[in-house]
Write a protein that binds this DNA or RNA. Structure first.
Lengths: 200, 200
DNA sequence: GCAGACTTTGCGTGTTGCGCAAGTTTGCGC
DNA sequence: GCGCAAACTTGCGCAACACGCAAAGTCTGC
């Protein structure tokens, strides 16, 4: 998929990531209202103007991390065996995406708080949802490719992608307020299991 | 539900509506970038400061109309007969909401363009999705009431509401780019028919 | 009709998004 | 190696924006 870690491009991604993390960290620590672009720039070690070169708003910088992750589900779907039933493949791709997180270096205590912030803060909700929609579009394209349909003209791939997004979001919300805490995988699997999308 | 058209409250809703329509009209006419808060205020006959009293951003003003409509689905669901199967009731409520539009005074040539704008303009997408999510929360509450579950603790009502939102959104997107044009009701019905949410 | 609550409005302020034009770094062909 | 073109970063400036505050105007309940 992406096999050109051109030295320049890599640096670019590093900067992007640094800015996004800085934004998340500061927003979680002191609350969104008490973080300026300048604070983020200082924290990330770049100039304020550069922050706005990468992201067109403070909110977008914070949501960038979520955006990038969500996009990954489409890639994971493409990697599933071709014979696997569609909804099952989508389920497994989503599961895999979130299990990958757990294995990552950062066990994200911060990350969970970041997501919670995006859901709680009105100023962030929009950007959060935008990221979700963008991911669903990518997912719809992957589904269309897999089923030989056209994401531009057919309803089905879009519907399946959107339904998957719905299941993931519902699972997230439910998981975050679950008391006592439960495994996210199990919630996600239950959500996908409860929704069924008919084939054409 | 709402039986207090207190003279004051009515005026408030009128102002709110006037501002929102003014914002939509201007944005559709000359493009979002060429509309300032001041323009909207002038068009709606209020002061710029008042616009920001009602809406915390230009985007919110434009999305307000969509927000209000989407909220209506939950009310319509509550009006469905109690014996009706859940998913069917949700389907009919959504259908009814959009068929009500057609019978309205304005056949909204402008309204369709408004929705298209909200989907096309990055600066509006966020607010558009926020409205969708808010509507889904209201719908989840209505579903929870109907099924005797708890929208705060149970996964099911949230999941059904989110799936319904998914179907509506997918139908909208598909309908808007359908060539040749098709009936929205038929697309929406097809979308709801293709998704199934199991009962617990 | 009057007192209190709610709205509208103008003003001032800190922040933001972005165009523009340097200055700096990186990739690439030779 | 070497230099040039493209891409990136940065500072500056400006119009627009979000919002607190307080004065003026308007409605509601009694």
């Amino acid at each position: 998929m992406t096999e050109r870690p051109s030295l320049r491009e890599r640096r670019r991604q590093e900067t992007r990531s640094a800015i996004s993390w800085a934004a998340i960290r500061l927003a979680v620590e002191r609350g969104l209202a008490h973080v300026t672009i300048e604070d983020i720039a200082t924290e990330a070690g770049v100039s304020p103007r550069t922050v706005n070169n990468y992201f067109s708003s403070k909110a977008e910088a914070i949501a960038a991390r979520h955006h990038d992750r969500a996009q990954g589900i489409a890639d994971l779907l493409r990697a599933r065996p071709a014979g696997e039933p569609l909804w099952e493949a989508v389920t497994e791709a989503a599961l895999a995406r979130f299990e990958a997180d757990r294995a990552e270096s950062t066990p994200d205590p911060l990350w969970t708080q970041g997501v919670q912030l995006m859901i709680a803060e009105p100023a962030l909700q929009g950007e959060f949802q935008k990221a979700n929609v963008a991911a669903e579009i990518a997912l719809a394209q992957a589904i269309a490719d897999r089923t030989g349909t056209d994401a531009e003209r057919d309803l089905h791939p879009v519907l399946v992608a959107t339904a998957a997004g719905a299941a993931i979001r519902a699972a997230m919300v439910h998981w975050m307020r679950a008391e006592p805490p439960v495994s996210f995988s199990s919630v996600l699997r239950a959500a996908f299991g409860a929704v069924t999308v008919d084939l054409p």
